[in-house]
Write a protein that binds this DNA or RNA. Structure first.
Lengths: 281, 281
DNA sequence: CGTATGTGTGTATTATATACACAGTTCAGG
DNA sequence: CCTGAACTGTGTATATAATACACACATACG
């Protein structure tokens, strides 16, 4: 996040990087996944290695995990912006620089708390249901997780390095997806639809949490968002939107949870239709 | 983004803020929209006011818009992190503090470039199609916009203050949505499904852009993401995921654009089913 | 004309990340 | 047992931002 932009597109390993197109197919991605594993060490290394420390020197007073726990605690309490190297170290009773013995940079620490924050998906119950209800449960669980840790969505890193917990969530959907009998490529697509919907649908909660981190109450947040939307009313540029705001619904109001369920049902409907069509083919 | 957390939940206007539940219904939100408009001045004010400046003093050398343009230019070139108050002012040929005459804080400036960056949705063609193809076009346009300006998704502010351009995008969908004959509440839901999918589906592009900003080529990015995913292979915790990665698809590979279309079709299928059911009822 | 109202500048402060050198620790091996 | 390599936490220094504040100057209204 800090300053480390433009290091000239240098090719690691000397090979010439042929200008790849900006839009890559999933296929290219997956091949890279299979192939590149042995290249240099990346930032995400930390997430996977149980760095077997040599038995030399003084034993460390902390473990990476303790650091992560404290950092997460700070994020939970006061939002992502409360996670500073000095805040973390202070709470641990060490100097700022001590943290750097465990994580080479703040970014690496953030990567770690992202993965830790996601936790593991709820255990697949021994009794398996149909794929549809399993996917629905997964989506609910993921939403619950995101709502509980809204700072997860706060960082742009969400799409970056994937740790074991992250993969566990993927593993869980794919497991359920097996019941659909879809082709592997299609599974990938379905996964991204469902995950996309789930994350998108958690945005409101995230927005609220962000406002909360700014010191606003829920009511104030509603007022703020409302004020923005409210400007549409009377503005000739937004007739339909204004109408939407002012027209009372004929139906009973949905809670946010109900809204999520509604959308989820639509999304799954769409998927189901494709699954059925595939089976027939 | 900087430090302005915990200002004790003070009630503005003196009224007591009754502890509202964290989960608000869309309805509550909309009522707030209608009501609160006349409260105090918010950050988003800037996005709406053509602050009629008093004719006193020296005339300003710049306009807020010029500042926004330059800031956006910087973001386009080198990512969001390149947008610093000093970079913006330098490019304009002024001192850092000069910017503060136009925007009270960096945050306000970012709000402004978000709205500016979104631009207006493509004009609705005079000839209207069916709602489904109109929604699809909207989604494509939005995705194109997000891919062109990946830094938009980089900031947590994306869900925050909504300016005129933002509302214009909403207006456009809702206009198309009219063709469905849905209830206003349902329209809101459908909107959020579609928008959620679109934004989620643009994430990969965003991720790439972010890596690019870090100085990575597309190939390096694929390698990095690939390396993360590749760890699943052979790891006993992720059997299904590993299988997904290694199993070649029986179908011709989809490009990312095709993937988007595929997902979009599923989502619209789900919506369509509901629309049809509603009509029948 | 003079003063309230604005404008851009310069300088100082604060928060953060992080580089670097150091002093103390501990164990492996002679 | 002793020595030094490998490692630990600390202290200090630097760089980058954001932004508060006071100032010198500009301008048009009264």
């Amino acid at each position: 996040m800090a300053g480390r932009k433009k290091s000239e597109p240098q090719t690691r390993s000397g090979r010439v990087t042929k200008a790849a197109p900006d839009v890559l197919s999933h296929d290219v991605l997956m091949q890279a996944a299979v192939r590149v594993d042995s290249e240099l060490r990346w930032r995400s290394q930390l997430l996977w290695d149980d760095r077997a420390q040599s038995t030399r020197g003084p034993k460390a007073s902390l473990t990476p995990d303790e650091v992560v726990q404290v950092a997460m605690q700070l994020a939970d309490e006061d939002g992502l912006s409360a996670v500073t190297m000095s805040a973390v170290s202070a709470r641990l009773g060490f100097t700022t620089m001590a943290i750097y013995r465990y994580f080479p940079s703040k970014e690496a620490l953030l990567d770690a708390i992202v993965d830790a924050g996601m936790g593991l998906p709820p255990r697949a119950p021994t009794c398996r249901g149909d794929w549809r209800s399993e996917l629905a449960q997964w989506a609910r669980a993921k939403r619950a997780m995101l709502c509980a840790r809204p700072w997860l969505a706060e960082l742009p890193f969400v799409a970056a390095p994937h740790g074991p917990n992250w993969l566990s969530w993927l593993e869980a959907v794919i497991d359920s997806l097996a019941g659909t009998g879809l082709d592997s490529a299609d599974m990938g697509e379905v996964l991204s639809i469902l995950d996309g919907y789930t994350r998108g649908a958690s945005d409101t909660a995230t927005s609220l949490a962000r406002a909360r981190a700014r010191g606003l109450s829920a009511a104030q947040w509603a007022a703020e968002v409302g004020a923005d939307l409210g400007r549409a009313i009377g503005d000739p540029r937004f007739p339909h939107f204004a109408a939407l705001l002012t027209t009372p619904s004929t139906k009973p109001t949905r809670t946010m949870d109900e809204s999520f369920e509604f959308g989820l049902a639509r999304v799954l409907d769409g998927i189901e239709r494709y699954v059925n069509a595939s089976k027939r083919a």
